[in-house]
Nucleic acid binder design. Structure first.
Length: 322
DNA sequence: GGGCAGGTGTAAT
DNA sequence: ATTACACCTGCC
């Protein structure tokens, strides 16, 4: 039997798991032929499905499993409901239109250690390879959980891993970063759990001291692992979305984008980021005249700058809200 | 095959 | 403070 998860109807499982915050979920065919999401959270191997809106926990269907999954998905009664978040975000006309394509994305309550490592690995990398690397790390250094599943490696295990092994996990030049981070945690020089209770900017400073952690990785760790919902990671997709949807395609620095997000979305900035990110990935293809910011080449003929009415119909952002 | 991929560290303005 | 460049490695 499977358990119906109360409150799961507002969550879009596929969108949430594919929204770039986690790299450890896979899709399988269930007995009935429908898609089943399989993922490891802590020491649980969860199997979930969502037909229409109803969200089902297939396994492990135990009281403890239900409680842990509910917490992880952010659909516990204590959590702020997704509908109220989306209603608040829709006060912004741009996000209101984005939401039509992204509704139901939640922010998972992941283990900050796993998030930290995952996003160190994500730097200058592509998603299929990130998933492969994380999977190999778990197989090589994580506790076996049965069904061919493995827990995420502890800081101790990762801190003691041989370079040869990390290379076999395809970490490349990031291997020393990952191991240095592991040692910080293993030695007790850094306690991630404490960062969740610190002010955003203070916690961010701490994370930036970790090798391999820049602003983007720090913000992802804050948002996806440490419950800092006002964090606003700026990657290439979010940059593209903000520049095109709010600034008529004009370049902005990461700092400007973050300042904008903080002003406009406050404690919901992290959720806004998720929606903008997913919208950009699905609907805002790269264009010759954005991000790369290479100097124009000779003979470029003055480069056709498009007028850019805005992908969403020409809404002009009011930068500072009234 | 060469460039790119959810950036970061480092050196040089 | 800002800018340029290299970087493991699999994939398109």
């Amino acid at each position: 039997m499977a358990a119906l998860l109360p409150g799961g109807d507002a969550l879009d499982l596929a969108r949430t798991l594919q929204s770039g915050q986690t790299f450890r979920w896979r899709w399988e065919r269930g007995p009935g032929g429908g898609p089943v999401a399989v993922g490891v959270v802590g020491r649980d191997v969860f199997r979930l499905s969502q037909d229409g809106r109803e969200l089902w926990l297939i396994a492990p269907d135990t009281p403890g499993g239900r409680a842990r999954l509910t917490e992880y998905l952010g659909v516990s009664p204590a959590a702020r409901r997704i509908p109220s978040i989306e209603t608040a975000l829709a006060a912004d006309p741009v996000v209101a239109r984005v939401l039509a394509r992204t509704r139901g994305i939640g922010i998972l309550a992941q283990d900050p250690w796993e998030v930290l490592v995952s996003f160190i690995v994500s730097a200058n990398n592509n998603i299929p390879k990130i998933c492969t690397s994380i999977d190999r790390l778990c197989r090589a250094l994580g506790a076996p959980l049965g069904e061919g599943a493995f827990a995420f490696p502890t800081p101790d295990r990762l801190a003691a891993a041989r370079s040869r092994m990390l290379a076999a996990c395809l970490l490349g030049y990031r291997a020393p970063y990952v191991r240095a981070a592991a040692r910080l945690i293993a030695d007790g020089r850094l306690e991630l759990a404490r960062l969740a209770r610190m002010p955003l900017d203070t916690a961010r400073e701490r994370l930036l001291e970790i090798p391999g952690v820049g602003e983007k990785v720090a913000d992802c760790t804050l948002l996806f692992g440490l419950r800092h919902t006002s964090a606003f990671p700026v990657d290439v997709w979010v940059r593209r979305a903000v520049e095109r949807l709010y600034f008529r395609g004009q370049p902005r620095t990461a700092r400007q984008i973050q300042e904008f997000a903080r002003e406009r979305f406050g404690p919901l900035a992290g959720y806004a980021q998720q929606h903008l990110f997913c919208y950009a990935r699905a609907h805002l293809r790269p264009r010759a005249d954005d991000a790369p910011r290479r100097p124009p080449m000779r003979g470029d003929g003055g480069g056709a700058r498009r007028p850019d009415r805005g992908e969403l119909g020409g809404y002009r952002a009011i930068v500072a809200n009234a």
